[in-house]
Amino acid sequence: MKFSSFYLWLRQKPRIAFFMCLPLILMVVCLIIYPFIYSIFLSMLNKAETKFVGIGNYLFLFKRETFWLVVQQSIFFALVAVFFKALIGLIAAHSINAIPSKGQRKWRGMLLIPWVIPPALSTLGWWWLFEPTYSAINWFLVKISLPAIPWLSETFWARFSIILVNIWVGAPFFLIMYLAALKSIPADLYEAASIDGANYKQKLYYITLPMMKNIISITILFSIIVTFANFDIVRVLTRGGPIDTTHLFATYAFRVGIESGDIPLGAAVSLFMFPILGTLAFIILRSVRKRALEV
């Protein structure tokens, strides 16, 4: 009797749903929520992790010149890299969408290669191209009587190099997302526009982009988060140099937290990203939701 009532209780839809989700909830709790709360706790300890200092570490960072340099660089890096990734992704998606579907597959496959190779590995290949003394690109430039470029040893070129590699790795993600969005736009709309005499530019502005708005917003949001938190490209190419001018939050947190053994300050540096990205995510997701409701 007791068992059957428990069975009935268990069979109710909300409970089944809860138990079905339980493995995922446990994973999220163990792998996301617990580390997040623990890192907040760590960021509120002193260097020896023996005393609670509240927001002392954050206030301490505000007074550090190098930290503000890292903030500026991270924002600059994320904005420039995401802009070019989005632009190149859009152009490439349109180009692929325009060719006959039979030939699309091989182009899609080829263009996705930079995205599917582990970045730490592909960046090593780029490092050989940019190597400070024996750069393969410089070898070619010198061969054609052009001056060698200090790819990694001068601030401007070092920033250029890490942004370039980030765009190379990340643009295919935009391409595939935009291509999927383009494919979902009904062909009737373009046909109707053609009958009305709309040219390519008008179709792009009045049909394609409005129909892709949500996917563009979400892709940009996702990419900003990933780009902001980038670690491997900078770590392999420049290790934050020259003179700390290519450090991002993640690489600087690694330098301070792991290499220098100041885990609480490292945690504070990495958590500094959270309010910036949280605000951005809130704004973008709100506009996406708003548009969805309008539709």
Binding site: T133, P150, E154
Partner: peptide, 15 residues
């Protein structure tokens, strides 16, 4: 050499 600002631990060996 101007590249010394980007050298890693093995660069001087290669040099």
């Amino acid at each position: 050499p101007k590249s010394i600002y980007a050298w890693d631990d093995s660069s001087n060996n290669r040099w």
